[in-house]
Design a protein around this nucleic acid. Structure first.
Lengths: 352, 352
DNA sequence: GCAGATAATGAAAGCGGTTACAAGGCCGCC
DNA sequence: GGCGGCCTTGTAACCGCTTTCATTATCTGC
């Protein structure tokens, strides 16, 4: 007597194509045709088949389909290490479009112990996904060039150097430019910049936009106006302290290259009794949820839309053999109190 | 001549088991044994096989494995409609554990057009996943009882009425209790509560905790102290206005059942010149990112941990035939300035 | 030295679909 | 009336792996 107790419990067997074919009195090929929709079937037979399938609660086996058809109806999405609301929006966009097209989404985060190229190669080689969306962001990646070209991969935000993979990016240059323009229009002339880490793609793009705007507006941009941050709350606070410690007068405005630093800076400035925007205007980038709560002027990044577009193309790439091209999505300036407040109101300090 | 141009481009063919078996001079069964690790193979043969596989960059086909082996190494995770940082943490926890066990994660969001029971049934019936983690939260669900029992499903946060599925929840009652206790210790006696929507599971649990704490502390809890909110920013602002409009004196403290409402309330109170925590102490629940930025006292929910535990069990359920039981995870009170600030500092208003 | 147990490997039958090919029915048209 | 062609359906060969069963080689103990 076999030792059943040690066996792994297994799903109860599902009805198969064959079961449906017997019940409806047609061949299994015909049932397959009904479900795959890849060939004509007479209305009468189709009706019988569908009826039988419903009666059995038949659902085609994904594995068998993938094996025989070489199509998985699955979209892979690979994200950088940290899960944040930021990426969650992208994922939501991807999932939305995938669902519409009958695709499922295999999501992976590149954790400390996983290397992205391995993940990409495994997913593709194992035939686990039909195509892949890669959120590159601040993670360097080293896909071998030979493996990369003509692969069904779409990148989000940033290109991989040397590859010709299509990228869905956003207009960092234009966003930064618009922000400087806005601050200028508010009457600010001495504008300082708090950048992201050196070498960070988004940060460098935004800096380019700033330079361009300063140039257009005929404003000088000295090195002393460019402060180096790290995209963290602490680096914002630190920058605020540095700026207060120098006995120089404060600038008219500070443009932080992301919201998190702007928030850190705001809290630190206020702690020191500096009024925002009365004494100094402040602006961030990304428009995180908190930015709205704190009335922080920012730039809206179309995360969800990027996810949607990437998914759309990743799917078209395999179902329609389309050849997507890179796109740069518009961003939108959101002006709030931190950069345009006229006058502060009567209320006292809130203690923070 | 066939019209190749209209064909969908297809992945370049991958090497198969058979290719490896020929190159290494053994049967394909033996190669399979090497890769599945399910049977003994002599060291010498194993070495030859692995060498051949490396040489060919062989990677076993996922579909074939799933079909023949009835195991997908895939974990499904289904989330409610809205993607937020909240859920992203859970997903990160799930992915982390899954990755360790060699599982991939199929993530789906139940959008407006998708019904969850359909999704669950499809995933399971199609054999797309080995087991499922369901984030139930504020979405009602109606899995047919017959489909539910003995299925490899783990719930997060909340049980499904009538099912006996294991749940990974958190101690809402204890969290709320601890909060009231804390406010009491700060000297507050007149404490108002701003609840979530009526019927919401988390909200009701938290209310139970509050009642229990009031009881223990010997404080009365009148209906007038319980305000009805909706878990939204606006409902927090509205509650603040209501409270200010009544000419009654403010309570000593207000415990909002989530952070978002607390933030709304805080902004509205401050706009009216009410000092927090000087005039009224404020506390939230969930410890969203913004809470730290605003120095809002809150309760940390172990989202990531819940994800990890759920994934661990969902996987053990199929690989070790374990029978998980429900668990209630501890939460942690985070005391910040909004409920315990002694005195406000000299600085003037910041304009918000 | 030999029966019986044990270990390593191979042969082959699926797993549940897809699809090329063949076959039959029915049509219009010369 | 016969024939080519289209439409629908069935037959059967895969897709690439797992697994049972049989086979052969290697031990073990008496």
């Amino acid at each position: 007597m076999p030792d059943l107790d040690t066996q792994v419990r297994v799903r109860k067997p599902q009805p198969t194509l064959y079961d449906v074919s017997r019940l409806s009195g047609v061949s299994s090929a015909t049932v397959s045709r009904v479900f795959s929709g890849r060939a004509r079937v007479s209305d009468e037979v189709r009706k019988r088949v569908i009826e039988a399938a419903n009666q059995l609660s038949y659902e085609p086996s994904h594995a068998a389909r993938a094996l025989a058809g070489a199509r998985t109806q699955t979209l892979g999405a690979i994200f950088p290490t940290i899960a944040s609301g930021f990426y969650a929006d992208v994922l939501a966009g991807i999932d939305e479009v995938a669902a519409e097209s009958g695709f499922d989404v295999l999501a992976s985060f590149v954790g400390k112990s996983r290397r992205r190229p391995d993940l990409v190669n495994r997913l593709l080689r194992q035939g686990r996904v039909d195509s892949l969306v890669l959120l590159n962001l601040d993670d360097t990646i080293d896909l071998r060039a030979d493996a990369v070209d003509s692969l069904p991969i779409i990148l989000i935000d940033r290109e991989i150097n040397g590859s010709s993979l299509p990228v869905i990016g956003m207009d960092n240059v234009g966003g930064a430019e618009a922000m400087i323009q806005h601050l200028f229009e508010q009457g600010h002339r001495k504008i300082s910049l708090l950048t992201g880490p050196i070498g960070n793609f988004d940060s460098e793009q935004r800096l380019i936009g700033c330079r361009r705007a300063f140039n257009t507006l005929g404003l000088p941009l000295e090195d002393s106006q460019i402060w180096n941050g790290a995209f963290t709350l602490e680096s914002g606070q630190q920058a605020a302290r540095n700026c207060l410690d120098m006995r120089d007068p404060l600038p008219d405005a500070i443009f932080c290259f992301n919201d998190v630093m702007a928030i850190g800076m705001m809290s630190e400035l206020q702690r020191a009794g500096v009024n925002v925007p009365g004494d100094v205007a402040l602006a961030g980038y990304d428009n995180v949820e908190t930015a709205a709560h704190l009335s922080l002027t920012s730039v809206v990044c179309p995360m969800r839309l990027m996810g949607q577009m990437a998914a759309r193309w990743a799917i078209d790439l395999v179902t329609q053999n389309e050849r997507p091209t890179s796109h740069r999505l518009q961003v939108r300036l959101v002006v709030r109190n931190s950069s345009s407040g006229r006058r502060t109101h009567k209320a006292g300090s809130n203690g923070f």
